[in-house]
């Protein structure tokens, strides 16, 4: 399995236990509530794929039976199923249009019966993988604009990361290691500047310029070069002559 596949597997494994995790579910409920306010829609739900690849409702902005049925229906068909399958957002879907009825006959009929006019589905992504979908419903016939769509996607990402927070520690440690490595690659350059500036009795900018020149001439990365200098594997005189 690739790293992404392992992460995905961990998330999928977690779906069954997530419903017992009060803190997370509580957070997702709050998030759904805020979604309805921020995006001015009627109802919001977070759907997550289970190990069989079927979408399950994890949290919703309200618990009306008709709404819950509407989410439950999307085991089989509906914009969330499509959104989950190809990772593309489906926005401003009119529930009374013949096209929608043809595409999702059961879902469209039930959604209309529940009093909704428009629905939207946004992918919940972990890197390239889609782990679920954020589903919005509006009782009024109003579309969301591009800015609202970006906010909706941002909130879908928040839901995703909240769920990811409950992955195994091994995966979490990988993410942390990656973040530290990214920052360290910058820190070592600053440290190397200081080392050279002191050895040569120059300014840090001059030291940086020399580091850069050497890195370019030797087609090596600046961070790797700085690390070699720090580890004493590189003669600073050689750097100066570059």
């Amino acid at each position: 399995m690739t790293r992404e596949e392992r992460l995905l597997a961990a998330v999928i494994d977690a779906v069954d236990t997530l419903v017992d995790d009060f803190d997370l579910i509580d957070f997702l409920h709050t998030l759904c509530d805020r979604c309805t306010e921020l995006l001015d829609v009627t109802a919001v739900g977070v759907m997550l794929a289970d190990p069989g690849g079927r979408l399950q409702l994890i949290a919703a902005s309200d618990e009306h039976t008709r709404l819950l049925e509407l989410f439950a229906l999307q085991h089989e068909e509906g914009p969330c199923v499509r959104c989950h399958a190809d990772g593309t957002a489906r926005l401003n879907i009119p529930l009374d249009s013949p096209v929608t009825a043809a595409e999702y006959p059961l879902f469209a009929a039930q959604a209309r019966a529940a009093g909704f006019a428009v629905t939207h589905a946004l992918p919940m992504r972990l890197r390239e993988q889609v782990v679920g979908a954020l589903n919005l419903f509006d009782a009024r016939e109003q579309d969301i604009d591009a800015a609202d769509a970006r906010v909706a996607q941002a909130l879908a990402d928040v839901a995703t990361i909240a769920i990811l927070q409950h992955r195994t520690l091994a995966h979490a440690n990988q993410e942390r290691a990656q973040l530290r490595a990214a920052l360290s690659s910058r820190i070592v350059i600053e440290q190397a500047k200081g080392i050279l500036a002191e050895r040569w009795d120059t300014g840090v900018d001059e030291a940086f310029a020399a580091l850069r020149r050497y890195a370019r001439a030797h087609r090596t990365g600046l961070s790797a070069l700085a690390q070699r200098l720090i580890d004493g594997e590189l003669d600073s005189d050689a750097l100066r002559r570059a």
Partner: peptide
């Protein structure tokens, strides 16, 4: 990383080097 010092504490790491 190579684009320059955008860390808030870049100067702290430079000083540590010195």
């Amino acid at each position: 990383a190579e684009d320059g010092s955008d860390l808030y504490r870049a100067v702290v790491h430079q000083a540590a080097g010195m």
